[in-house]
Amino acid sequence: MTVLLGFLVLFAKLAVVLGVLLFLAAYLVWVERRFLGRLQVRLGPNRVGLFGLLQPLADAIKLITKEDTVPAEADRFIFLLAPAVVAVTALLMFAVVPFGPDITLGGHAIPMVISDINIGLLFVFALSSLGIYGVALGGWASNSKFSLLGGIRGAAQMISYELALGLSLVPIVMLARSFSLVDIVNAQSRIPFIVAQPVSFVIFLLSAMAESKRIPFDLPEAENELGAGFHTEYSGMRFGLFFIGEYVHMQVLGALIAVFFLGGWHGPFLPPAVWLLIKIILVALVMIWVRGTLPRLRYDQLMALGWKVLVPAALVNILVTGVLLV
């Protein structure tokens, strides 16, 4: 009976999280386009529905009804699989993000996280690394020179920044003394880690933007050089999956930043989940602001930033944190 109930609760949580994630992903697109428009003194989409609020729906209908083409020379199986890899890994990462303290329902404590595993942080990194496969395989399977270049760029870029991303979180783990995301959030119940670890925060933010392939780090899909890069050959809903993957990724990274540096669901007056949502959206807005301001980096600049600045800075940061903690 308890097991059955546990499953029921789990499914309920899954459904809610998935629904909220996909809904948010869709509306993040709308937010991005409107916000970006305003940054560029434009209006942005305002035709479908009030303030263009139905634009995501229209986009979805368009993508679903479009012809799903596979290039004749493409590796069909991998080509069809790649977008799913991207979307699935991005969604799975949310499994370990806590969105509130445990609540008690009918005598049972229900954790406000899908799965509180004690190596949550490593799980996040593992999935984030798997996500690269989607990009690299999609680019390779298309059998098109632009896609291949995009895929290779994506793989190289993500491997480079994965390192800085991981290293930047070592001080956080050292401070929280746990890999579990729930523990990390709980460790920030008084002050968020951004105050203690500003350098880590900056490194993580930059690496996270690079991970999600956003301007100024969108080299794998550089429109003007590669014509959409790894997803040049994709159309219809398969392209849509890449798209969803990217925006879910953006939310996951927003959530991770909130969890690691902004105190997670901690906050006064409002319910914890709402706080988390606000923090995610704030991070997303900052990312959009960056996109509206900065141009794309050159490839060598990207590599130099990753290897020559972020990795050493993260290492020094670990050293300093270690020394201070001891």
């Binding site: 428009g37 305003r38 940054l39 560029q40 003194v41 434009r42 209006l43």
Partner: peptide, 8 residues
């Protein structure tokens, strides 16, 4: 720019 009137 956020606070300027859009030229659209």
């Amino acid at each position: 720019h956020l606070f300027r009137r859009p030229i659209t």
